Amino acid sequence: MTQGQERLFVLEASGGGRLFSVNPDGSDKTFLVTGCRIPDGIAVDAAAGHVYWTNMGVPQENDGSIERVDLDGGNRTTIVPSGVTHTPKQLHLEAADRKLYWGDREGMRVMRCDLDGSNVETLVQTGEGADDRRDETRWCVGVAVDPAGGHLYWSQKGPSDAGRGRILRAGIDPPAGHDAAGRGDVEVLFEGLPEPIDLEVDLAEGMLYWTDRGDPPRGNTVNRSPMHPADGRRTPEILFTHLMEGIGIALDPEGGHMYVTDLGGSVYEAGLDGSHGKEILVVQGNLTGIARAVVAASH
């Protein structure tokens, strides 16, 4: 039987844009890809042997893209070419429907496609044109999917440190008779957040997690809240503080761990409740997305 090996896959926006993998204790750092155009969101399909990531490109140029590479860094290919998505951010691979989902910041939308990059769709559209684009409350960043519950979650970060960030939820597909811009099923779960970025869900426990890169004390944190609170009240629980502009988050629900990155260059490990937090890597450049996967030991 092939022995599985746990690996973390991390994106670095600095250094010319790089993708590397490490063991969960921070050892055996291996660069897989260089020359990425401001990489931001990452997802791993361990069974198929692929890593996917988004490239923001130049935000004002509408030239974002999505690429794929083998787990060992081979066979790099662009699956969503430059210009199909404006400024793609967090990336989520949903095993249930074999789709990629992502937030498109300056594109002001949440999008998805097949794993080969075909059938690109816009699921949520929060604005249109240059005037709307200047309104950062419309910028979609983080994304998560609850396939069994039929819900799509996303963050709209708002201006930097402005306390106008929101986390929203809707059905995965627009309701019949509604387009992406006129959906009637959008719920605002949280508003007035410092600057929410990436999202993750623990479906077994019904918990939504997110990073926030805004001002302390509520910003530069990892937070969580029940996806469906019994009393209907939603109050973020701050789990982890003192990040240096927190961005990426990856959960290991079975092992009881989470992994977090920040633009200050650290990768952190903590329990799902934020306990026993520690840095496993430091001074690694401007880190963005992170994903965890169990891969064949040969990788």
Rank of each mutant, 00 (worst) to 15 (best):
D45K: 09
L243C: 10
P226T: 12
F190E: 02
K157W: 01
T87S: 07
G17D: 01
N75H: 14
H86R: 12
G129P: 02
R98W: 09
N55W: 04
Y259D: 04
M227A: 13
C36S: 09
F31T: 15
V80L: 11
S266I: 02
Q125H: 04
A230N: 14
T241R: 06
G73W: 06
A162W: 00
G264K: 08
V33W: 01
P174M: 09
M227Y: 01
V69D: 04
H299F: 06
Q90N: 09
H242Y: 08
I280T: 05
G57C: 07
G182M: 03
D25S: 10
G219A: 13
L19M: 07
V201H: 05
A181W: 03
R292V: 14
V294K: 10
G274D: 08
S225I: 01
R98G: 02
R134G: 15
G277H: 01
A162K: 00
I238H: 04
Q5C: 10
D185W: 05
A180P: 02
D161Q: 08
M258T: 12
D63M: 09
L208W: 06
V10D: 04
D185L: 11
F190G: 02
R234I: 12
L115N: 01
R138N: 10
C140L: 01
R7E: 02
S225G: 08
G264M: 06
L32P: 01
I249P: 00
P81C: 12
G129K: 03
E94R: 06
A46I: 06
R213D: 05
S118E: 09
A181Y: 04
G256H: 03
L193N: 00
A95W: 09
M258Y: 09
A180Y: 07
T211M: 00
R218C: 03
R37T: 00
E254G: 13
L152K: 02
D135R: 05
G289A: 09
H228V: 14
R76W: 07
R166N: 03
D70F: 04
R76P: 00
G16D: 06
R233Q: 15
V260M: 11
T78V: 12
R224T: 12
I238W: 04
N23A: 10
A291T: 11
R133L: 01
D273N: 13
P236V: 11
A270C: 10
K157Q: 15
A95F: 09
D135I: 15
P39H: 01
G264T: 11
E237M: 14
D45H: 05
M111N: 09
G192V: 08
Q60G: 06
D212I: 09
K157I: 13
I249A: 04
V120Q: 10
Y153V: 10
E6T: 14
D114N: 15
V145G: 02
Y52E: 06
E6D: 07
D104V: 02
P175C: 02
Y101S: 00
I197D: 07
S118P: 03
A180D: 04
D28A: 15
G83P: 05
L19E: 07
L11T: 02
E195K: 06
R98D: 14
D63S: 03
T77V: 13
S225A: 13
